[in-house]
């Protein structure tokens, strides 16, 4: 192992030490946010793989997270729970009796979502044009319609309640780190180069003998898998899921994260996830009633979303590169930075 690898491993160990410390000392609320940060990091990194690295604008996360959440939820609920919950129409028998522990349920949730990703990507990537965005946007709306109507599977509008709370800070961050490793290794390989080639110039990529269809599929299916797993983690964290839960706001939040971090930069995404998730918590202030200099301003629910969308538009117009642009954080650049500063001081 070289010095840089050791540094990377050390910082991951440091991260987990922080989380371990926080688990005992920080408030439940703060730890809940850190759990969300872990899950969102995995979601955002996946989302950046298809949008930033491969350059295919997509709006899939809320739909895919919903699928992962439903699949995992159905698998981790006990048959007795399901029988009690499906009061309008009983659940289909083979699902009714299916029950397993958390880890395989998450994996299956991820695989089912990956398969859906395959089914969606297949028609879309065969044609040129920006159809992925509108198809995935439509898919997010459609999955809501479908989960509302397939009552014997999803319990319809009633949703699924009382999910076992398996998700802990360790599950969240274990998956986040794993997803980051897988995705960054992919990006730093011939597959990643091909994805960036497709992003920069699709015709030229084809002329290099790259099967652009499969390269896009690879990015999309990988993203789908981790989004499915993320959905499972979220389901067990929130313990209730219903058709209206995974709205477009989830996708929008992730879009802001990857834009702030820099389209195509995974380390930028990590940084931005922390900034945006915590920023979003702090922004709740604008929805609370407040008194400024004796002036009473009533709380405006939904104001956060307006702020978010204005922020996104402004970033796109004035700061398209985000924090990192397409660059990645590297130890070398950090060393160089300090070296330069030292020279400057002398």
């Amino acid at each position: 192992m070289n010095k840089k690898t050791i540094l990377t491993v050390l910082s991951v160990v440091l991260l987990f030490l922080f989380l371990w410390y926080g688990d005992g000392h920080l408030s439940t609320y703060a730890m809940r946010i850190w759990e969300e940060v872990g899950i969102f990091l995995m979601l955002a990194a996946s989302y950046n793989l298809i949008n930033g690295v491969t350059g295919q604008f997509s709006l899939e996360p809320n739909g895919f997270v919903a699928i992962g959440a439903y699949v995992t939820a159905i698998l981790i609920l006990t048959p007795a729970q399901k029988e009690a919950m499906f009061i309008i129409t009983p659940m289909v028998p083979w699902l009714q009796n299916l029950h397993m522990s958390f880890f395989p349920a998450l994996i299956i949730g991820g695989l089912v979502t990956a398969f859906v990703g395959f089914l969606l990507g297949f028609p879309v990537f065969r044609v040129r044009g920006d159809y992925l965005a509108i198809v995935t946007l439509g898919f997010g709306l459609t999955i809501r319609v479908v989960s509302n109507n397939t009552v014997p599977i999803t319990n319809g509008a009633l949703g699924l309640k009382g999910l076992p709370t398996y998700t802990t800070i360790w599950w969240c961050w274990g998956w986040a780190v794993f997803a980051m490793i897988v995705i960054m290794r992919m990006v730093n390989s011939e597959f990643g180069r091909a994805m960036k080639a497709v992003r920069d110039d699709e015709d030229a990529a084809i002329a290099m003998g790259i099967n652009t269809f499969w390269i896009k599929m690879t990015a999309f299916i990988t993203a789908a898998f981790f989004e499915g797993v993320g959905g499972g983690l979220l389901a067990s964290l929130i313990t209730i899921i219903s058709p209206t839960m995974f709205t477009f706001f989830l996708t929008f939040e992730l879009l802001i994260i990857i834009v702030v971090g820099g389209l195509g930069s995974m380390t930028g995404t990590a940084l931005a996830t922390i900034v945006v998730i915590w920023g979003s918590e702090i922004l709740r202030v604008v929805e609370q009633p407040m008194d400024i200099f004796g002036l009473h301003i009533p709380g405006i629910p939904g104001m956060r979303m307006v702020v978010f969308s204005v922020l996104l538009i402004l970033i796109m117009i004035f700061a398209r590169e985000g924090i990192m642009g397409q660059k990645e954080f590297s130890w070398d650049s950090l060393f160089n930075f300090f070296k330069k500063n030292k020279v400057a001081q002398k």
């Binding site: 180069r193 960036k196 080639a197 992003r199 920069d200 110039d201 015709d203 030229a204 990529a205 002329a207 195509g264 397409q326």
Partner: peptide
């Protein structure tokens, strides 16, 4: 193999 009239490199690579 081919090249293009208006050079088409992968500009960010």
């Amino acid at each position: 193999a081919r090249t293009f009239q208006n050079i088409r490199l992968f500009s960010n690579l």
